[in-house]
Write a protein that binds this DNA or RNA. Structure first.
Lengths: 340, 340
DNA sequence: CCGATTTGTGAGAGCGCTCTCTCAGCAGGA
DNA sequence: TCCTGCTGAGAGAGCGCTCTCACAAATCGG
């Protein structure tokens, strides 16, 4: 509108306000070393021109990108279901909104190659990285750690001794709650369908199951554990194996994900077992699947959005120079519906 | 590693390869005017140093941001369910991956204020904008259009005469298919539960319903239309109203979303009506809800991921200077399950 | 075999910003 | 009156890159 073509520059603001570029820069960045009169003058010019600082130019000299990457590791992304993804993004976005930091979304699968991300990120194109990957042996966290790039995992790494920060739901506690609920309802032959055991989530939910059994005094009763893979198919198959087991029939199942619980429901229906009368079923996550399953699933809700938010806070703190290595575990909540 | 601290620069690559900055730049940007020998030389140096161009510096001079924004307009986001969101993001990301363009995710709700986005975007900080907003009277498309910022809508605007490009599913055709399917199964009292009629999707699916009835020769039979709002509650309420209607009972329902179909299922169950024996139900979207509903929903699948991909292609073409104003309608597919 | 291209490469400016350094202006102590 | 100390503002360099322009070397018709 005023001056040359394209968006207004610092230079133009300076000219309009009758001061130097440096002074405008000081005002824009909130430096205290500007007299009130000049500050007001500059602010008027900024408003009049609709000036917005050029991010690229600023980044170039400050060597900050003012943006963080959210790296989603496909194909593992399918393990955390779509609502998980959406909720997480929402939380991250909300936390970033307050700061001026931008969210860059990187789907690992779509990246040019392994190493690209690493080079990209280490090359200073983002200030920090959120890793939404539950995958166990992913070398990326280690690489980032070594390169000194701030990073926060959403979902703990398999190797708990690994350095670096993470945010996770209290998977173990949540699983314990689920089993406790089943025990309180009088169930005695409580089985579990685990997730992939090469992931932190899978391990923790299994541990929680054992905790729950122990707390209910049911620990001695022989292990009713079948391994799934977080998918519906896997859940159905595992449920099938549980049904074929000799001895007293299972009267409750804790599945480590809603999807597997849905699979279990299907297998139970196929076998003619009534839910919850004959077999109670509990899932984990409180996704859409849980709400619309028939019967609706009792499940453990994890605060996905809050996880995204907290991970972002942790990351920004690290970017600002605060210490890393934080482990934040968020509470889960049992949501009781018809299936148990 | 080599040279100063921080990531390697063009300068360092040039020094290592024994050429000028300009030549390295040419190689990096794939200019044909470089001899093979020199090119190889430079490429070796790039590889050795692990050089990645500094985006900020490049943007500064080219005046391209090499990034596009995906603006998701909350609270309307809840209308397109979470799987919709995830699928769309995946498609967009996949299409961008081939180019070097970055994806910036902006949740409208989280933005500082109205006008910020406008200034930000018009200020040249992104090359284009994808608008995933089905909301009718959003002024943003118009603003962008006027500012000459490339933009593509995902989901057509209410005002079909509005300028600008969009990508959408063939909502009308899909709805027609759904109704045709019901008619072919011998249903004669086919009702519909519409979505919000102030959105393109809602309108189109209602039109498609009417098309379907007309094609089946059922058009004269009085309108069995109830208005919903894309939510499960709305679907259940609308189904309730349909059940209370005097005259012959409804023997089929086409709901304009899976969520509303799930609500209808609930209302039917509550009323003791068997699905599909007494009342057949068809949804729209093929979301997780459809797969896990009881009975599993027959529904119309829309190629969400493909929509994201195509919208991105359109946007990039526009950014490259090709004409806008394209309207791309993608085919839908009837997915037959147990509910109809 | 010489001027007129064509082709590959380098020199250098400058994108919009931040930040250091310098300096003008003024107050206060000797 | 001069020096010192401080504060607010400007001059100018330079971040890493692209791109125009100039230019040397290779190519070629007459």
């Amino acid at each position: 509108m005023t001056g040359g073509p394209g968006p207004p520059t610092l230079e133009q603001v300076a000219a309009l306000a009758g001061v130097s570029r440096a002074t405008v820069s000081r005002v824009v960045n909130g430096s205290p070393k500007v007299s009130p009169a000049v500050r007001a003058q500059v602010e008027r010019a900024v408003a009049k021109l609709g000036y917005v600082p050029n991010r690229a130019a600023r980044s170039l000299v400050t060597r900050r990108a003012d943006s963080v990457a959210l790296v989603v590791s496909e194909p593992h992304a399918r393990f955390f279901s779509e609502p998980f993804f959406a909720g997480m993004v929402r939380g991250v976005s909300a936390a970033l909104a307050e700061t001026g930091v931008q969210l860059l979304l990187l789907i690992a699968q779509d990246l040019p190659d392994r190493g690209w991300l690493e080079r990209y990120v280490v090359g200073g194109h983002v200030d920090g990285v959120l890793l939404a990957s539950l995958h166990g042996d992913d070398p990326l966290p280690g690489t980032l750690e070594r390169a000194g790039v701030p990073a926060v995992l959403i979902g703990r790494p398999v190797d708990q001794a690994a350095p670096g920060s993470y945010v996770d739901a209290d998977n173990r506690g949540g699983a314990g709650k689920a089993v406790g609920h089943l025990a309180r309802r009088g169930r005695r032959r409580i089985a579990t369908i685990t997730g992939s055991l090469d992931m932190g989530v899978g391990q923790d939910r299994l541990e929680g199951y054992r905790d729950g059994l122990a707390a209910a005094g049911l620990a001695g009763a022989g292990e009713l554990v079948e391994t799934g893979d977080f998918t519906e198919e896997g859940g159905a198959a595992a449920m099938g194996r549980l049904l074929e087991r000799p001895g007293d029939p299972v009267d409750a199942v804790f599945a480590a994900s809603d999807l597997m619980a849905a699979g279990a429901l299907r297998a139970l229906r196929a076998a003619g077992r009534r839910v919850p009368e004959e077999v109670a079923v509990v899932g984990f996550e409180d996704s859409a699947v849980a709400r619309y399953a028939q019967p609706p699933l009792t499940t453990v809700r994890q605060p996905i959005e809050e996880m995204g938010r907290q991970a972002t806070r942790l990351l920004l703190a690290q970017v600002a120079g605060e210490a890393g290595g934080m482990h934040l575990i968020l509470d889960t909540e049992l949501v009781v519906r018809a299936s148990a």
